[in-house]
C-alpha cells in the first residue's frame, strides 16, 4: 500500500489575517527585466511578494510600471518601507503604500513590511526607531511585519508592541551569507512562540542559495523572505525553482523531526549474522 504525501496541503502560513499557500515570500527588486521577474515569481510558487514605494519618475519614464507585470489576483502584495532611516519617513511610506494598494483593491493594503534602517553600509535596522514606528503603525491599524536583527530581546519587544510578525535577518540584506547565528533564531522562536506557538517568525534577508532556505525552515521558522538570491542568480527562474524545493524540503524535515546528532556511528545494517565475525577493536 502506498499513500501519496502532499505536504503542501493544510500547511499554509497564517500571518495576521492573511493565509499564504507558500512559505516563501519573494521580493520584486533587482531583476534585469519585468518579464524575468514575473517568470521567477511564478516558478517560486510564492503567494506573497514585496514591493517598494518610490517617487514616480515624471520625465524619463518609459511607460512601464511593475504593476503591468504583476497578477494582482494571484499575489498578495506586501509593501515595504525600505530605504527609510527614521520613524516619520517609514510611517509616511507605509501610508502611501496602503493608499496605492487600496486603489488596486489588493488585500495587502492592510499590512506593511517595516524597515527602519540605521546605516546605509550594513543596512542593519535601527531597533529603537523600528520599535517606535511599529507602535505608531499598529495604532493606525496596520498589520506590521518587522524586519529586525536576530536579537531575541528586540524581537520580543517588537512583538509586545503589537507586531503581527517578527522577521529577523539571517545576515545583512543582499549579503548572501545565509543564517549566521542559528542559535539566535532559535531563541527568537522560543521567546516569541512560548505562549503563542503560531506566532509567525520569518527569516528575512541574507539568503544566498537554496540550502540557506532549507536551513532556516529546518530551524522551524514559519517562512523565508528573499529577493537578491533569486534576482541576481545567473538563472533566476531556475533558482526560484530551487528555492521553492528547498523551502518545502526544509519545512518537511522540520515537521518530520530530525534525528539527534551523535559523536559515534550507529550501524544501519544488522550487527548480527555477519559472516566471519572477526571485528577490529
Amino acid at each position: 500500500m502506498s499513500t501519496e504525501l502532499d505536504v503542501s496541503t493544510n500547511d499554509w502560513l497564517q500571518i495576521g489575517s492573511h493565509r499564504l499557500d507558500s512559505r516563501l515570500i519573494v521580493g520584486t527588486g533587482k531583476y534585469d527585466t519585468y518579464e524575468l521577474m514575473a517568470d521567477s515569481l511564478r516558478e517560486s510558487a510564492t503567494h506573497c511578494i514585496t514591493v517598494a514605494v518610490r517617487r514616480e519618475r515624471l520625465y524619463d519614464q518609459h511607460g512601464q510600471n511593475i504593476l503591468d507585470y504583476i497578477d494582482l489576483n494571484r499575489y498578495i502584495l506586501l509593501p515595504n518601507t525600505a530605504g527609510c532611516y527614521n520613524v516619520e519617513d517609514a510611517v509616511r511610506t507605509a501610508r502611501l503604500g496602503r493608499e496605492i494598494l487600496r486603489g488596486l483593491e489588493n488585500s495587502g493594503a492592510d499590512w506593511v513590511k517595516l524597515e527602519v534602517l540605521g546605516d546605509s553600509k550594513t543596512l542593519l535596522p535601527d531597533p529603537i526607531a523600528t520599535l517606535k514606528a511599529t507602535e505608531q503603525l499598529v495604532e493606525e491599524g496596520f498589520q506590521v511585519l518587522c524586519y529586525t536583527t536576530d536579537d531575541p530581546i528586540v524581537a520580543r519587544q517588537l512583538k509586545n508592541a503589537g507586531a503581527t510578525a517578527v522577521m529577523p535577518a539571517g545576515s545583512p540584506i543582499g549579503s548572501g551569507q545565509g543564517i549566521l547565528n542559528p542559535n539566535n533564531i532559535r531563541i527568537c522562536m522560543e521567546y516569541l512562540k512560548a505562549d503563542d506557538p503560531n506566532y509567525p517568525v520569518i527569516v528575512d534577508a541574507g539568503v544566498g542559495t537554496a540550502s540557506d532556505v532549507a536551513e532556516a525552515m529546518e530551524l522551524g521558522v514559519d517562512g523565508v523572505l528573499l529577493n537578491t538570491a533569486i534576482a541576481h542568480a545567473k538563472d533566476p527562474v531556475r533558482m526560484s525553482h530551487a528555492m521553492r524545493l528547498a523551502c518545502e524540503a526544509g519545512r518537511s524535515a522540520y515537521l518530520s523531526g530530525r534525528i539527534p546528532k551523535r559523536l559515534y556511528a550507529t550501524a544501519s545494517s544488522p550487527e548480527d549474522g555477519v559472516i566471519g565475525g572477526a571485528r577490529p577493536r
Binding site: G29, K30, T50, A52, R54, R55
Partner: peptide
C-alpha cells in the same frame, strides 16, 4: 507634492 508609485523591492 510627493507622487509615488510601486517599484520592485525586497
Amino acid at each position: 507634492l510627493e507622487i509615488v508609485t510601486l517599484v520592485g523591492g525586497g
